[in-house]
Amino acid sequence: MVKAIRVHEAGGPEVLRYEDFELAPPGPGEVQIRQHAVGVNYIDVYYRKGAYPVPSKPFILGNEGAGEIAALGEGVTKFKIGDRVAYAGPLGGYAQARNIEAKFVVPLPENVSYETAAAMMLKGLTAEYLLFRSYKVQPGDTILVHAAAGGVGLILCQWAKALGATVIGTVGSEEKAKLAREAGADETILYRQEDWVARVREITGGKLCHAVYDSVGKTTFPGSLDCLRPFGSFISFGSASGPIEAFDIGLLSQKGSLYAQRPSLFTYMADEARLREMAARLMEAVGSGKVKIAINARYKLEDAAQAHRALEGRETTGATVLLP
């Protein structure tokens, strides 16, 4: 038996039940991980509330974590008992131990802690594909990062700066502007108080940006397109303010032969070799100190409901982890 946080019915934080759970041995192609830390993300709230479909009930929340290999399923040869590992993958993270397909699991080097790994897998892998795959950032590029003080935003600012880019970030408050600047943003724009499109034009001397990374959605479109130079890339990877509604694709021609994408992390992760390559690049960036992951809240596993209340109350900055 292991302890886990299980959800029997959709609802508020009170539906998170800390209870015993019978964990079966890992099946073919699976590994069992004894978890040292589990990441908490806003998507967990959506699952808890019933906004996203789940395979069955009761279910266990959580899509990322880190720990040691405790058991191997039939056919698994890439790991051995005791290996340090991290993962981003299917639900099942809020538990002392879990089974997961080995294809979602990556090696964890000694210079990256379990807590850091659990806090960074989803956000860090997202930043990796945005900077190296959706648009390959080059030294001298200028990029715009919306929600620059958010979880992904802070990683984007640090990593893009390390790649030699000029980083402009939009934020909602002076406190968040300070966080973004500390993470490497060259310029910050208070989007609630300023005409942020005009400010981007001013900051760049009218040259505009090579790429815009937009996790906000409805309220920043089509303004994001107006921040791009000809042949620039608009990369929409979230919709915090609501989804972008259908738009006339002719806009991309009118505004400078632009490229527009709506990528998904799980599409990139679907290929095991690519996932390992992405994770290795992320581990190197964090292990070398080029990218720092701020963990500002730690809770015991049994206090998951408290963690959700803080998250929904916007009381958190940086990452939150659960410690089984």
Rank of each mutant, 00 (worst) to 15 (best):
L108R: 06
E74D: 14
R192A: 14
V54L: 00
P26L: 04
F247V: 12
T142H: 02
S239C: 11
G140W: 07
I249M: 15
V2Y: 04
D226V: 00
I244Q: 01
V31G: 00
A297I: 00
G289T: 11
A279G: 08
A66Q: 04
D44G: 10
G150T: 01
E277T: 15
A147T: 01
V38Y: 03
A160N: 06
V216D: 06
A4V: 02
P109N: 09
R98T: 05
F21G: 04
R192W: 04
G217M: 10
L163I: 05
Q261Y: 14
G287H: 04
L190Q: 13
K255S: 06
P139W: 11
K78M: 05
G238Q: 02
A97L: 04
L163E: 03
G151P: 00
V152R: 06
R98F: 01
K123R: 11
V167N: 06
V45L: 08
I168G: 07
E64P: 05
K178N: 01
G206S: 12
L322K: 04
I295K: 06
K103P: 03
L179C: 11
Y129T: 02
G50A: 11
A119V: 06
F132T: 15
V145L: 12
C227L: 12
L23F: 09
E312V: 05
E14A: 14
D83G: 01
T316V: 15
Y18W: 03
D226Q: 15
A305P: 03
K178G: 00
M278G: 09
I33L: 06
K49F: 03
D20L: 06
K178A: 15
H36Y: 13
T77K: 13
T316Q: 11
F247D: 10
I69K: 08
P28F: 06
L91G: 02
A198N: 13
S134T: 13
A10L: 08
Q254Y: 13
P90K: 01
S233P: 04
G12Q: 08
G50I: 08
